[in-house]
Design a protein around this nucleic acid. Structure first.
Length: 490
RNA sequence: CGGGGCGUAGCGCAGUCCGGUAGCGUACCUGCUUUGGGAGCAGGGGGUCCCAGGUUCGAAUCCUGGUGCCCCGACCA
């Protein structure tokens, strides 16, 4: 065994780091908290991006690009927004370097003569610069709705980072829309939440719970934050996407007004919504195992790999090419690994490590029997299948794998959502069983923070589909009308 | 920003206590034999031992001061 992964049961956190490295997803960078996204990791992100981008376009959005640098003064225009982000902003203060010294002592320093009059912040999110721009773009109700998305990088100077899950710089998309009525903005907020949920479940095969954030967990500057929450294999929660109803907060902060049909000036209503490269982390922690990455077929850069098992005097490539062609005709991405440097055993392990959903082993035995050995990554089952109609069989198998991954993840999640009605049971779920505790809460931030203090668990969301139900808060004993989801979170 | 750990070949590490020519595994290069689950043998290349200063005949090793990274916490997508 040339490559070994720490088993999940031994150290889940180390297992995650091993997968990132050994499946060639990302490297550490010289700068703390940043990562180099390697071609295989980036290919997965590209698949995500392409699918999401198509969904945004279908719902009427267009892409644009706003600048990386934001004048410092912009951030302070919306009071809550600045409170939320000020702590973690990178700031540009100078625009030039110069060299000093000679020979071995020569070094580069910041030129003190080149200090910026107004410092620039590197965007932690783009609401401020976008709303500053929208002020000029919007004059009449005829300019609305304005439905814009951007694909960009943002920087948040985090104390503690982990590849994909939390990095100082990350890639994401941020949608920013402007509407003439509150109802329309709220419809947009909910619509994009639905888009995220559909993407998570149908492409990532990652079941999610749609919900509303508590005031404490709300986006800085939003009136209401909606989210999709997923459960990782270790029972911890991952916020996978958020969609915010911003009310008129940013319109008021940046004086974005429009004339309505009655020739009256009104502030516009706003939304913003985003998902990031964090989704790659969620994908890893939803499906992968001790043999490596497991990818759902719809996001796999390579869906099928063909590994010829060479024997002297045996011509395999013709058969392999024929299989590949028939699969490609059905839109399936196929790689034939004809590299003669590595032996088949090495290749088997390697393709399992990087998560290729289906592997075809093709050797003398198979050719003689007009068969091919089909191995599926999700269950690691192997089966000999006739070459006649192999394309149809593989197409169906990919769909089965996609569905099986979702079902497996959903079953695990559902088994780890536990209704609890008293403090002891609450603590036991969080400490022993793991997963989400579905419990009554009195609705106050004070209680929420007290629970976090004692258990490290936070309210992940108030699920959208939950019914009202009389009960008492597990912490304060005060009356409650609904349950909320508690969990430890990434 | 607190607490802990670590900087030695691309990667993972030993050597440091007790100073004396820089080591192991893996990866890499060459050749031969191999190829249905991470090949074997033989040969080979590769190092400012994190940086600066000090002690010493002599420092990876001892002393002083820097610095970087990782892990654990508080903060967050």
């Amino acid at each position: 065994m040339a490559k070994e992964i720490t088993p999940r049961s031994e150290n889940y956190s180390q297992w995650y780091l091993d997968i990132v490295q050994k499946a060639h997803l990302a490297d550490n960078s010289p700068v703390r908290g940043c990562m180099v996204i390697k071609p295989h990791g980036y290919a997965i992100w590209e698949k995500m991006r392409d699918a999401l981008d198509a969904m945004f376009k279908e719902t009427g959005h267009v892409n644009a690009y706003f600048p990386l640098f934001i004048p410092k003064s912009f951030l302070s225009k919306e009071a809550k927004h600045v409170d939320g982000f000020a702590q973690e902003c990178a700031v540009v203060t100078h625009y030039r370097l110069k060299t000093i010294g000679e020979g071995e002592n020569r070094q580069v320093v910041v030129d003190p003569e080149a200090k910026l009059e107004e410092e620039l912040i590197v965007r932690p999110t783009s609401e401020t610069i976008i709303w500053n721009t929208y002020r000029d773009w919007i004059q009449s109700y005829r300019d609305l709705p304005l439905l814009i998305n951007q694909w960009a990088n943002v920087v948040r100077w985090e104390m503690r980072t982990r590849p994909f899950l939390r990095t100082a710089e990350f890639l994401w998309q941020e949608g920013h829309t402007a509407h003439s009525t509150a109802d329309e903005a709220m419809f947009e907020t909910r619509q994009m939440l639905d888009v995220y949920a559909k993407f998570a479940e149908e492409f990532m095969a990652m079941p999610v719970i749609k919900g509303i954030k508590t005031e404490n967990e709300r986006f800085a500057g939003a009136e209401e934050t909606f989210c999709i929450e997923a459960m990782m294999q270790d029972g911890k929660a991952l916020q996978a996407g958020t969609s915010h109803f911003l009310g008129q907060n940013f319109a008021k902060a940046f004086d974005v007004l429009f004339l309505n049909k009655d020739n009256q000036k009104e502030h516009v209503w706003a939304t913003s919504w985003g998902v990031s490269t964090r989704l790659v982390g969620g994908l890893i922690m939803t499906h992968s195992d001790d043999s490596g990455l497991v990818l759902p077929p719809r996001l796999a850069p390579i869906q099928v790999v063909i590994v010829p098992i060479p024997k002297p005097s045996l011509e395999l490539s013709e058969v392999a090419d024929k299989i590949a062609l028939s699969l490609r005709k059905r839109g399936i991405s196929v790689k034939i690994d004809n590299d003669d440097q590595n032996r088949p055993g090495f290749k088997f392990a390697e393709y399992e490590m990087i998560g290729v959903p289906v592997r075809l082993g093709l050797g003398a035995r198979d050719i003689a029997a007009n068969q091919v050995e089909v191995a599926r990554r999700d269950t690691k089952e192997k089966q000999s299948v006739s070459l006649d109609g192999i394309d149809v069989h593989i197409e169906q198998l990919l769909e089965d794998i996609q569905q099986n991954l979702f079902n497996r993840a959903k079953q695990y999640r559902d088994e780890h959502i536990t209704k609890v009605d008293n403090w002891d049971a609450f603590v036991e779920v969080l400490e022993v069983k793991g997963g989400f505790a579905y419990a009554h809460w009195d609705g106050t931030t004070e209680t929420e923070l007290a629970i976090k203090e004692k258990t490290k668990a936070t309210i992940r969301c108030i699920p959208l589909d939950n019914d009202t139900e009389d009960g008492v808060c597990i912490m304060s004993g005060k009356p409650s009308t609904r349950r909320v989801l508690f969990a430890k979170a990434y």
